[in-house]
């Protein structure tokens, strides 16, 4: 079977004793996608990632990577993956260079960290010769990112990858991810930062209390997201109403609406009004994600 589905998770449940890790989760990730996995702390993001890498064994359900069963072909799968754990901790008694050598040794490859990556993250030879325990949290995170990218993986699994990176380095990281995607790499990452998910991901899944509460294509999500429209009319209109829009406030002839969902109906409605000026804000996903989180909380 051509592995166009790089990740396939079918009805996976994981219990830790009596406590639930994830319950009956299912999703797919296609080749070349950047897939965002979102959820609050303790929702089950890291559990899902560890299940994908065969670090945890599912209580029930089936996980496939590259079309292969994770528990039966874990070794072959891990050859094709790069992984950055959440709260990344390297082996602190090694230097950065020794750390990279060890990981290459485990892969029985002679891959060295790409000099271009090292330069872009500002990791000089001096830094690489220092013991990891003497490095800052941000620098250790950079080592983590580079080790994940080092063997040119077909699938990158990243657990909250930008933790500890300054905004400049976050920017470098985003560029690297997009380059990897252009080279055909599939990227699965969990994050709290909605801005980076919005910027990078083509698909997202939202997990809460161990259950997937939403699976969305980012473009559709943006269409669903609430827009704020401000219109100024040339003269007053009685009983002003717009499709899909809720009047938030008004000031003289200026009205502010929150528009939920598509804007086709809204544009038709606007065409009938004496609009003197209009501004439409870019849709923000924050409210939408918050809605996912809080909606299920109220269930």
């Amino acid at each position: 079977m051509p592995p166009d589905k790089i990740i396939s998770v079918e009805n996976v449940t994981k219990y830790y004793g009596k406590a639930i890790g994830v319950r009956d989760i299912s999703f797919d990730v296609q080749e070349g996608e950047i897939f965002g996995f979102l959820g609050p702390n303790g929702a089950g993001k890291t559990t899902t990632i560890r299940l994908l890498l065969d670090l945890l064994r599912p209580t029930s359900g089936l996980l496939k990577l590259f079309g292969m069963n994770v528990s039966a072909h874990s070794f072959q799968i891990r050859k094709k993956c790069g992984y950055l754990p959440g709260e990344f901790t390297a082996l602190s008694n090694l230097t950065g260079l020794e750390f990279f050598r060890l990981l290459s040794g485990l892969r029985q490859s002679h891959d060295k960290p790409n000099h271009d990556f090292l330069d872009r993250f500002g990791l000089s030879k001096q830094i690489l010769h220092r013991k990891i325990r003497h490095l800052s949290h941000g620098t250790i995170q950079k080592l983590g990112i580079i080790q994940a990218l080092m063997n040119d993986p077909e699938l990158l699994i990243l657990d909250e990858p930008t933790t500890g990176l300054d905004p400049l380095m976050q920017e470098v990281f985003y560029e690297l991810l997009l380059e990897r995607q252009n080279n055909g790499c599939t990227i699965f990452f969990s994050s709290h930062i909605l801005m980076e998910v919005e910027r990078l991901c083509s698909h997202v899944a939202i997990i809460k209390n161990g259950e997937i509460v939403g699976r969305e294509v980012m473009a559709d999500l943006k269409n669903k997201a609430e827009r704020i429209i401000e219109i100024t009319l040339s003269h007053p209109v009685a009983d002003l109403k717009l499709p899909n829009a809720i009047l938030k406030n008004s000031n003289g002839l200026t009205y502010t609406f929150a528009v939920d969902g598509g804007i086709e109906g809204l544009l038709t409605g606007l065409a009938k009004l004496p609009v003197a000026d209009i501004s439409i804000s870019k849709p923000g996903l924050e409210n939408l994600f918050m809605k996912y989180y809080t909606d299920t909380e109220n269930d």
Partner: peptide, 14 residues
Amino acid sequence: EDGTMELLLSHPFK
């Protein structure tokens, strides 16, 4: 405990 085992076993290391 410190998470380095997770890192080692995420590589092709049986």
